[in-house]
Design a binder for these strands. Structure first.
Lengths: 329, 329
DNA sequence: TTGAAAGCGCTAACAT
DNA sequence: ATGTTAGCGCTTTCAA
């Protein structure tokens, strides 16, 4: 590869450490020597080897972000926000995807640790006490997103309460037949991730408290199930989908089957994503302020990295949410 | 940090190099010693330091992906495809964003080079001969996306021809007043990136060959401009937008102003993104097969890394496209 | 079959 | 103000 600091030192007729001082701009060094070295460095196109630097320093000035994938714009929004927050710091962002595989997620974490990343932001697929312990024992801090595992630092909304509000809102619109849809956001054990579980719980409880029967549709083949459901529905059904991406899928599917939103069924989503709004069809949804989530997660992580926030305490940041009125109910 | 190979050697009562042979599984080594070492390694939780390994080997088994940002799902689709293609290889993906800043893009490239990434896939904002030369002189191979700079390896569609087809399609639908919209995809010099420039060229030329006047709207404030445009339009205008994301913006905006798609204006996009289709409003667009683009880009890069494809030749892969019929024209 | 030693390019503590 | 030296944890060549 390229020029090393030693080469540069030779070219300048000084020692390595002098070159170093010039480059890092610290320590006592003659102004002229410094200038000379810097000029020479530029002239020869010297570029420090970050790998070597990181090894020597024991850290690589990298912040890792691990999410499921980018099919769901929800993650794109979060990553964008994290990127903006970290931009002015000297860190390099490193985004990777676990694709809902627990093993892959752990592998990615290990790689980041091994590359001496300074910290990681994760929208995890793993869960449970063991995972919490695993995270805790990592040599670098982590912040989880959308998944308030008790013994970890995390940021997200109150999924339970948000769902309760959503269901109430739907009822207020006159629906009594509210169906919860939570399709393929399962891990490799077939279990849904915590955020969805909390939403489901919220849904079940309001329904119960209203004396209504819960009905939950999930699984990879949820669309055919929905068709069956709408066919035998007594009153006009409202589909509360655990994600705008699913709400749009449901709506598109039912339109193809000849049903018409609002006339024949209602739809509400979650995780407000702008692209599902176009002025004619605007999906009603919960805006959980994903950019605030990403921003806050990055902020907390930076604070932990800089020692401003204790790593051995758990910080739970709850972000606000609102109902975004559309015209699909 | 954790346990090093030396620690492990000590614990096993052997030398570093023996440990190494056991770990790498090569070289002549006693079967039992090997087994013992591997067990001990597992027991003590030995994890190689990837930074040190990379430094020693001169490469870090990382593939970098640099795109503008994730606001536009177009990039998300490409990244997803690249991720899937690289998944089974032993490479770690590293996704970062230049946010349309030329300087930032170069910085990211330098960082990846400096971290000894094996190769980079870029949707570039920089352009021109100088940039081509810059890329060529990098010590690692690069593949560009959606931007067929002549002296680089790239994959994308025939933007020019696709636009010609799009305009013809719009005309076939009865429109004569076709307006091209190409908003904020500018670099920091205020110039649009090459893909958009080619599209514009295609647009201009068909219009001309049909004896029609071109009208192009761009800039950050393109929405108000569109309102002006529609107000003084003679015939019903069709807005051909250089990106579904813009098509949706235009449509949403005009709806808010009281206009109605298809009745009062037509809209066509580019870069088919699924979320702009819902069964009621389906944006007509050019499907440029972004997943095929990502897949191919990854494949070419891997081939270059593995020496199966010469780095000093330029490979241009053209992906097919089709018109995706919607109901916005 | 195993061990010793050099080197990747850098930082940092120490000596001049 | 500048130079020397010893690591960081790994791979790799050479010697035993």
């Amino acid at each position: 590869m390229g020029l090393t600091a030693s080469d540069l030192a030779k070219a300048c007729g000084v020692s390595r450490s002098t070159v170093n001082r010039a480059l890092l701009g610290e320590g006592r060094i003659n102004k002229d020597t410094k200038k000379m070295i810097l000029e020479k460095a530029k002239e020869l196109g010297y570029k420090p080897n970050l790998l070597a630097r990181s090894l020597a320093m024991g850290k690589s000035m990298t912040i890792g972000v691990i999410v499921a994938d980018l099919n769901n714009q929800y993650f794109a929004g979060i990553i964008d926000a994290v990127g903006k927050r970290v931009k002015n710091e000297k860190y390099l962002l490193n985004v990777t995807f676990h694709e809902k595989s627990k093993a892959a997620e752990k592998e990615l974490i290990e790689k980041l640790v091994s590359f001496q990343a300074s910290g990681i932001i994760i929208s995890p697929i793993n869960k449970g006490r063991e995972f919490e312990k695993y995270l805790k024992e990592l040599p670098i801090p982590t912040v989880l997103i959308g998944n308030d595992l008790k013994r970890t630092t995390s940021v997200g909304i109150d999924e339970y309460q948000a769902t309760v509000d959503a269901v109430k809102y739907i009822m207020q619109k006159g629906y009594r037949n509210v169906v919860f849809c939570c399709p393929p956001l399962k891990d490799d054990d077939g279990k849904n991730n915590l955020g969805h579980v909390l939403r489901l719980k919220g849904y079940r409880e309001v329904m119960k408290s209203c004396g209504l029967k819960s009905c939950c549709i999930y699984g990879d083949d949820y669309l055919p199930q929905i068709e069956k459901n709408i066919k035998k529905s007594a009153g006009k059904p409202a589909y509360l989908c655990s994600g705008d991406i699913f709400a749009n899928e449901v709506m598109t599917f039912l339109h193809q089957k000849g049903y018409m939103v609002k006339r024949d069924f209602g739809v509400m989503g979650f995780d407000y994503v702008k692209s599902y709004q176009n002025g004619i069809v605007n999906i009603t949804t919960i805006d959980n302020h994903i950019s605030a989530i990403g921003d806050k997660a990055a902020e907390i992580l930076l604070d932990m990295i800089n020692g401003k926030l204790a790593r051995d305490e758990y910080h739970h940041e709850i972000i606000g949410y609102d109902i975004k009125e559309g015209n699909t109910l």
